[in-house]
């Protein structure tokens, strides 16, 4: 059911040309996917996706739209090449999933190798009930540090792009003004 709604939202996104509506739809899409995550036991992820996808990124999109205008031009030509690329990629993925272990099967290798350790040992090793937190902050704490750095890098990037004095546009001729 959620999946079907998601698909509908996705298609609507594709068709919509009012960017305002598109952004709102994207927020809804995120919320729906958060719902899906909850269904699939990923409560932490759902929480984050709701906060980020439906919250922060919608706000950012709206902020950007306020600056950029919210109408999209009609695509000039039928995009056959992208369609082809997408079909090939999608087809390949579907083909690839044929050999994938079935959805939700507890015997899948993915649930055993290291996942077993996390679930069985983490309480002895770290004594925290939320395994996601244990893995996030300790077992794979270094990834999280990288993630923090990514966020920081994004801030640096946005500061570089938007913090300057306004009205000092880059020169279209690209020549240095020598100052």
């Amino acid at each position: 059911m959620l999946l079907t709604l998601l698909a509908a939202a996705g298609l609507a996104l594709l068709r919509g040309r009012n960017l305002f509506a598109v952004v709102m739809l994207a927020g809804i899409y995120s919320l729906l996917s958060a719902g899906l995550f909850t269904v699939m036991d990923a409560v932490d992820v759902a929480f984050t996706e709701a906060a980020v996808g439906a919250g922060i990124s919608t706000v950012l999109f709206l902020g950007a739209l306020a600056l950029c205008g919210h109408h999209e031009n009609k695509p000039g030509h039928t995009p056959l090449l992208p369609l082809f690329v997408v079909l090939v990629t999608g087809g390949l993925l579907v083909w690839g999933t044929m050999d994938m272990p079935g959805f939700g099967d507890p015997a899948n290798p993915v649930h055993h190798h290291v996942a077993d350790h996390y679930i069985e040992e983490s309480y002895h090793e770290i004594e925290i009930p939320n395994v996601v937190t244990s893995v996030l902050a300790s077992y794979r704490g270094y990834d999280t540090m990288g993630e923090t750095t990514v966020v920081f890098a994004a801030a640096v990037g946005v500061m570089i792009l938007l913090a300057g004095r306004l009205g000092r546009k880059p020169r279209p001729d690209g020549k240095g003004d020598g100052t």
Partner: peptide, 28 residues
């Protein structure tokens, strides 16, 4: 670690985008 590759890949990429955008020409 393969996932760690992705995390650091994004650190380098995000900063690279910003660095390139620092060019004087608007095409940067």
């Amino acid at each position: 670690d393969v996932f760690n590759v992705f995390v650091f890949l994004e650190i380098s990429s995000l900063s690279a985008y910003a660095l390139i955008a620092l060019g004087r020409h608007r095409r940067a």
